[in-house]
């Protein structure tokens, strides 16, 4: 099967592999500890682990965009900020 029309590159393939691995880890986590551990965090909303991952990924996307628009093309620092942000989301949201 030829997937050249999808214009794959190594960095984008790695990006999607990481997303797939994150989803797989969440599935395994759910298998080990079912129920999604719902709780009410600082937003006042009941969130599950899946919600917190969604917020982390969406926030990370905007952090990277803001970094590109305001700072520059070196995104490693944006990745670091995103990781800290994800930690706070999983801890407090």
């Amino acid at each position: 099967m030829d997937f050249s029309w999808m214009a794959w590159t190594t960095p984008t393939a790695i990006f999607f592999c990481v997303i797939a691995l994150l989803l797989l880890s969440m599935a395994l986590w759910e298998r080990v500890s079912p129920g999604g551990s719902p709780r009410r965090g600082i937003l006042g909303l009941e969130t599950t682990r899946g919600d917190r991952l969604f917020l982390s990924l969406l926030g990370a996307a905007f952090i990277h965009l803001a970094w590109l628009g305001l700072v520059g093309p070196n995104l490693w620092q944006a990745l670091g900020v995103s990781a800290i942000y994800a930690f706070f989301v999983f801890r407090f949201v």
């Binding site: 029309w5 999808m6 214009a7 794959w8 590159t9 960095p11 984008t12 990006f15 999607f16």
Partner: peptide
């Protein structure tokens, strides 16, 4: 996925 791939390339 294809759009993401296109967004980092020129054609």
């Amino acid at each position: 996925m294809t759009v993401v791939n296109y967004s980092v390339q020129d054609t």
